[in-house]
Amino acid sequence: MRAALVAAVEDTLVYDLDGIGRQYAALCAELPGVAVRFAMKSCPVDEVLGHLARLGSGFDAASPQEVAQALRTGVAPGLIHYGNTIKSDRNIAQAYRLGVRDFATDSPEDVAALAQHAPGSRVFCRIATTGEGALWGLSRKFGCSPEDALQVLGAARAAGLVPSGLSLHVGSQQMTAEAWLAAVDSLAAVLEALGRRGIAPDRINLGGGLPALGVLDRRGRPLVPPLDKMFTAIREGMERLRAVSSGPLSFLLEPGRHLVADHGAIRAHVARLTSRRRLDGTRERWLYLSCGKFNGLYEIDQLQYRLEFPTHAGGQFVDAVVAGPTCDSDDAYAREGSPVPVPRAIASGDPVWVHSCGAYATAYTTRGFNGFAPLPYTCVGGRVPGGADA
Rank of each mutant, 00 (worst) to 15 (best):
Arg97Ala: 15
Leu191Glu: 00
Gly314Met: 13
Ile20Asn: 12
Leu210Thr: 02
Ile20Met: 05
Ala76Thr: 10
Arg122Gly: 00
Ala159Pro: 01
Leu223Thr: 11
Val36Trp: 01
Trp286Met: 08
Val190Tyr: 00
His355Phe: 06
Phe317Gln: 15
Ala8Arg: 11
Gly120Cys: 06
Asn84Arg: 01
Gly381Arg: 08
Ala134Met: 06
Glu239Thr: 07
Val380Ala: 12
Thr130Phe: 09
Gln151Thr: 07
Ala113Pro: 12
Leu79Met: 09
Asp16Tyr: 03
Glu254Asn: 11
Gln65Val: 05
Thr311Cys: 06
Val45Arg: 15
Gly214Ser: 14
Leu161Ile: 00
Gly171Gln: 11
Ala188His: 08
Gly74Asp: 10
Phe294Trp: 13
Thr176Ser: 10
Ala373Lys: 10
Ala53Gly: 13
Phe59Gly: 07
Ala3Trp: 11
Thr365Leu: 07
Ile20Gln: 14
Gly209Ile: 13
Gly256Cys: 09
Phe317Pro: 08
Cys327Gly: 00
Ser329Tyr: 03
Ala118Gly: 04
Val190Gly: 00
Arg218Lys: 12
Arg344Pro: 06
Gly99Cys: 11
Gly165Asp: 08
Gly381Ile: 15
Glu336Cys: 05
Ala243Asn: 13
Trp286His: 11
Ser145Leu: 07
Met230Ile: 09
Lys229Asn: 02
Leu287Val: 08
Ile346Thr: 00
Leu297Glu: 13
Ser167Asp: 04
Phe231Asn: 04
Ile20Val: 15
Gly209Pro: 08
Thr378Arg: 12
Gly198Asp: 13
Ala25Arg: 13
Gly349Asn: 10
Val111Gly: 14
Ala128Glu: 10
Pro351Lys: 11
Gly33Glu: 13
Gln65Ile: 03
Leu253Ile: 08
Phe231Leu: 11
Ala8Phe: 06
Ala193Leu: 04
Leu161Phe: 01
Leu191Arg: 03
Gly208Val: 01
